[in-house]
Design a binder for these strands. Structure first.
Lengths: 192, 192
DNA sequence: CTATTCATTTATCATATGATAAATAATCAC
DNA sequence: GTGATTATTTATCATATGATAAATGAATAG
């Protein structure tokens, strides 16, 4: 693809590590844009993650099944990177899927080719290092949010930090993200 | 320090990204070794994390206070890296402390100097990228372990995956790591 | 060694959340 | 638009865990 077709992506990159023109071109060369309809999965569960996604438009979630129950790991909105890191970084098959919750336009970056670029472009390796460091920090905070808070507190925190999630996403998906059943979430919301 | 004084550290590094002799020398130059007594803190809560630690010997934990309650974020044993990433990667003060649980010998690597080395040694940047990618993946798995499991299941999983934790660490610290009170953990242990 | 502090267990009671079922409400296919 | 599917709420009951208190056991200082 051309760099000019990926402006939101490169805008996003600037927040972490601005790239040289050459760096941008090389990333553009291994990227593609696709659109996806609501309720479709980007990839089936069980496949190894070989693409890093960037959400131009739409909403998505990563989910998996635990004992047959659908569990949401995380939600993603416009201008964010989506990757199943437990597969991307280990090369093992992912037991998770990325599902589109609102019609989406998504940039896909081939990860094998990206990792090859790391060798000739330290700036690209640094960029993704910083992106994933930030994601790591978020995950650490997520654990703090879970530990020792009641479901009601977690719900209220989400309401404050990311009201979008509660406005735009089916509650059944939010419940498992909060670590409770859908019925409990409904009850908590009813409390007032 | 000399490279020869840091063999366990460089052995550990080899699992992620083997370094050139020059790379090792440069890391050795910004490292130091110290011993710490049981129950001491490496750094007070509130200071910004400027050191990445490697545990040659001993046991440690990262902990913080939430609503006045001591919560264990994680445990660390011999041959592991310890860092409060939410401070290291953001430059913000850390609300967490590293406490020594068994007399320890610890390598400290100055993080500002390390980050400078990244510029001239891509191999070093890559090494730490991989180390923290692996830690990130572990953290993601940790969340899966918390979500939708009872305290008893979490306890039994820990017993299986890391019996060392339960054998060598005071239960009061383990309880908060599992997300329950110390009294509940004691009851769960008593069950069978 | 003794006393003091600290860690762990045990017991009781209160409560938040799960499980299940059923009633509404909203969405979707045709 | 209508019916069928899917999502959400409401209700009831069961249970795991928290809060508190007290008893026992272990570690530590002097």
């Amino acid at each position: 693809m051309e760099v000019t077709e990926l402006l939101p992506l490169f805008q996003f990159f600037k927040k972490y590590n601005p790239l040289s023109t050459d760096g941008e071109k090389n990333i553009a060369a291994i990227s593609s844009i696709n659109t996806f309809k609501k309720n479709t999965d980007l990839q089936p569960i069980g496949h190894t993650c070989k693409t890093i996604y960037f959400l131009n438009k739409g909403i998505a979630r990563i989910y998996y099944f635990k004992d047959g129950i659908d569990i949401t790991e995380n939600f993603y909105f416009e201008n964010s990177i989506i990757a199943r890191v437990e597969s991307l970084f280990t090369g093992k098959p992912s037991l998770k899927a990325i599902q589109i919750l609102e019609d989406a336009e998504i940039v896909g970056i081939n990860s094998n080719q990206l990792f090859k670029l790391y060798d000739s472009f330290p700036e690209i390796e640094r960029l993704f290092r910083k992106i994933f460091e930030a994601a790591y920090v978020e995950t650490v905070h997520r654990i703090e949010g879970i530990q020792f808070h009641t479901a009601e507190e977690r719900y209220k925190a989400l309401l404050q930090e990311a009201p979008d999630v509660l406005m735009r996403i089916p509650l059944k998906y939010v419940a498992s993200y909060l670590g409770i059943t859908q019925v409990s979430l409904s009850r908590i919301r009813g409390l007032k």
